[in-house]
């Protein structure tokens, strides 16, 4: 039985993703398309929210992946700090822009949904505020990566920032809840207070969630491959120069 850590070897990682990436990419496309088409065209309108409710099929998966991406970065950072596998650090680097965009999608679709529902594009609701704060954390993380020339130093510093940032992100979340009890519905997948979401919605929503997860995986794998190639190229150039 091969060890899981073998995939932390860049060469092994590249060889595996050579065949894995197309499969994941196609799966992501098929599942997401199925989920979205199912959600948009084959579900009934909500009796109170009308067809606006269908933005949930983008909003919820994006918001979920925004948080999951950060958690993945946290795990990857820990792996880098403890075991010093380069692929892990590069995967964390590749995940950040994806997480940033997912956060942005969550915020924008939320605004578009909130406008007809609450009559406002933006509210300083704890959930919304937390997402805005998460957005800031992503920005800081990416900015730190781009400011450092030496890749290993960058990996070390951003990993520590990710760890400390995670603690403070959680603290900020509780601070935001404390600061303003909001009007955003709970995460219980309930469309209106008291009524649980029907399976007619749940099934396509879960499909979309899986689809977004696969999209995330595709983008992170592709991004990590790019980063590995960039590192390799940098190393080759340095070797040319030093030889």
């Amino acid at each position: 039985m091969a060890s899981f850590w073998e995939y932390a070897n860049p060469l092994k990682f590249m060889r595996t993703t050579d065949w894995l990436l197309p499969i994941v990419a196609v799966a992501a496309l098929v599942v997401t398309a199925t989920g979205l088409i199912w959600g948009f065209f084959f579900t009934p309108d909500d009796f109170r929210q009308g067809s606006t409710v269908k933005i949930v099929f983008i909003h919820v998966p994006a918001a979920m992946m925004a948080i999951n991406a950060w958690v993945m970065m946290l795990v990857a950072s820990l792996v880098w700090l403890i075991r010093r596998h380069h692929v892990s650090a590069l995967a964390a680097k590749a995940a950040a822009p994806v997480g940033l965009v997912m956060t942005l999608i969550g915020l924008i679709t939320g605004a578009v949904w909130g406008q007809p529902m609450w009559g406002t594009w933006w509210a300083w609701d704890p959930r919304l505020t937390s997402f805005l704060i998460l957005f800031l954390f992503y920005l800081g993380y990416i900015a730190l990566w781009s400011a450092i020339d030496d890749p290993d130093t960058g990996a070390d510093l951003t990993a520590v920032l990710c760890l400390v940032g995670s603690v403070f992100a959680v603290l900020s979340r509780y601070a935001a809840i404390f600061w303003n009890q909001g009007l955003h519905q709970g995460a219980s997948l309930s469309v209106a207070p008291g009524t649980r979401m029907d399976w007619a919605y749940k099934a396509p929503l879960y499909t979309c969630m899986v689809g977004f997860g696969l999209i995330f995986l595709t983008l992170v794998l592709a991004g990590t491959r790019t980063e590995i190639r960039a590192r390799r190229m940098k190393a080759l150039v340095t070797r040319e120069r030093m030889a």
Partner: peptide
Amino acid sequence: RFPQAGTGDFDEAFL
């Protein structure tokens, strides 16, 4: 001296 490409070492250090 630089390690030769393709050896086990290279993969971890990208060199």
